[in-house]
Nucleic acid binder design. Structure first.
Length: 112
RNA sequence: UGAGUAAGCCAGAUAGUCGCGGAUACAGUGCCGAAAGGCCGUAUACGAGGAAAGUCCGGGCUCCGUAGGGCAGGGUGCCGGGUAACUCCCGGUGAAGGCGACUUCAAGGAAAGUGCAACAGAGAUAUACCGCCUGUUGGAGGUUGGAAGUGAGAGGUUUGACCCCUUACUUCCAAUCUUCAGCAAGGUAAGGGUGGAAAGGUGAGGUAAGAGCUCACCAGCGGCAUGGCGACUUGCCGGCUAUGUAAACCCCACCUGGAGCAACACCGCAAAGAGGGACGUUAAGGUGGCCCGCCAGUCCCGGGUAGGUGGCUUGAGCUAUAUAGAAAUAUAUAGCCUAGAUAGAUGACUAUCAAAUACAGAACCCGGCUUAUAGACUUACUCAUUAU
RNA sequence: CGGGGUGUGGCUCAGGUGGUAGAGUGCUUGGUUCGGGACCAAGAGGCCGUGGGUUCGAGUCCCGCCACUCCGA
């Protein structure tokens, strides 16, 4: 991931939840805020309520993989946070892919 | 063939494309830096589990100055062995369950002492309500004996009265038996009916009625002998009966200082810990409950950062073989190096295999236990049925 | 990652020393009132988080799980 660094601090997450734009999907919620850098910063959050550690790791990996797929197609200079939502059945790779495409479109992040 | 018991093993594989982590090697007159080095790039091999989980035990390691003794507290609890250690493992003993293979068991002491045992029941750790028996008092009835009276008969003296004998009936007295009622009386604990439990069980003798009162067998207790390292087994003898509960206090034996890698050590940042104040050798303080012992300093106060490095993976390690042992396990030899992250690396897609799906993700490290778990396989054994 | 704590009527909590599980509030019914509230009386509602064990008998004692929650740089 060339243009992306991970987002680490808790207060950065809080800032994005408070001031950023968001769009909710079935399995994930996407928060987006402009930063003044020439890169994107990515954060993924999964709460303990989602499941045990295997499930939490699984959803994180699926989101990361899909972000990697779309990375070159989206605009630069944003903080992006994904929040996994608890659902009855575990989503697979293609569910997440579809949903992330939909969310990016809604928040107008694709390069024209 | 069916049903079952025990032990063990695997935890998708192969190929391709993209992606992640640390390690090693290489390269670029690349970027940052005074340098050490870091970042970017390429290649190579490696990269979660049988439970990584729960954190229930044990140990290593680190710090608390030392980690000593005693008390308290906590833990363990049939016997022998294994181990660094254990609440673990192996083998055995006993008890319980199963037709059996086999499984399960916190399995020391209740005769050191204390506590508790609701309700029910006559009575709850010994008692005596009912009952049974004896004694005694009274009533009723039967039998026997005696006395009196009446009637009848016979006899004697006879006019008769009267006397004697026999028999029947009535009354009274005594003895005895049966039965009923009572007793501030005694004996008894077989029977009643409650309860989880009523001071051994069954049968016979015995007795006024009964009772281990006596005897036989059984259970339990003690002693001796036998076999065994031992738990214990088997046999003989003795006394004659001992409620349950110790996952109630307790007694006995053994073990046990506390805290945890967010321990801890070093570096850096910061106006600043190389600071200030208080107490002190008769004392106070520390030793994470107390005392003794020991120590020589101890205690209190105020700000910020929450960064980096080490600890961090070569270890009670893994594999193979041999030897010792019944086994757990130990020893020897040879070979191997097999995650080490720090917001936290293993993922995605395609194809093939009949199918790829369970529980589930290392965080200082080991040995166990417990719990979760789709499917597939191997070995040994038991029972039932059929055929030979 | 490590160390603790708590689960009892719908809700907030007692009971923890083995012997029929209780309080307040809420709910239902009746009374009182013209009606409501307040008040009075009666009642329902619990296998004490869950699975075993010890015991004659566990909410209580012991062991294993589950859920929630607090603390530690």
């Amino acid at each position: 991931m060339k243009n992306t660094v991970p987002l680490k601090n808790n207060n950065e997450f809080l800032k994005i939840y408070k001031k950023g734009r968001f769009q909710a999907g079935k399995n994930v919620v996407l928060y987006v805020m402009k930063n003044r850098l020439s890169l994107n910063r990515l954060g993924i959050t999964v709460s303990k309520k989602f499941g045990k550690s295997v499930k939490r790791n699984r959803i994180k990996r699926l989101i990361k993989e899909n972000y990697r797929y779309y990375e070159e197609l989206i605009k630069v200079g944003y903080d992006i946070v994904f929040v996994a939502r608890k659902n009855d059945c575990m989503p697979d790779y293609f569910d997440i892919k579809k949903e992330i495409k939909f969310l990016f479109k809604k928040l107008d992040l694709f390069i024209e």
